[in-house]
Amino acid sequence: MTGGDLTEKRTAAAEAIRSYLASSVPSADTAVRPDGELEVRVAPRDLLRAAQALAEAEPYPLRYLSCVSGVDWVERGRIEVVYSLYSMPGPEAKVSLRVETDRDVARASIPSLAGIWPTADFHEREIYDLLGVTFEGHPDLRRILLDESFVGHPLRKDFVDQRPAARRVTRGDYQA
């Protein structure tokens, strides 16, 4: 399949998924990008319904969750979580499901999608670990990479290393 063919098929699939989604989650904000990817933005309270609809979308159910990413929009005071979805096999419809939440650690919370795509389990733990987003209803929300004793969420742009001074190295230490 050449690139052009794929883009065409993806665009057609994206349109089909878009109209399917519009019937079940009308509040979702959708857009088809030039490369045929469908972008879906939803509010946290609609996330579970939208995810369920996408997982069952006719005729292209998006059963493959390839990645969950977290983005820290520090200027806007928001954290965005992006779910990258594909339908396989077939024209491989591609969807990025985006949801934004508050940046404040106490309030940064969205529903967990581990019940729909088991892959989300570890990915959400990683985002909890590094960005401090709480996933409501997650089966086992613990730090996954860092030690339990770690203080803070290091991929936040305003993270400050709170280890003892002997463990910290700054650029100045290398300058003679």
């Binding site: 990479l145 770690f150 290091p154 002997a166 463990r167 190295v169 650029r171 230490d173």
Partner: peptide, 18 residues
């Protein structure tokens, strides 16, 4: 020896002699 290319990273010990 010193943390090497990762010295200064949030989770890297700058040298095992610490």
């Amino acid at each position: 020896c010193t943390g090497g290319p990762y010295a200064g990273a949030y989770n890297v010990v700058p040298g095992i002699d610490k």
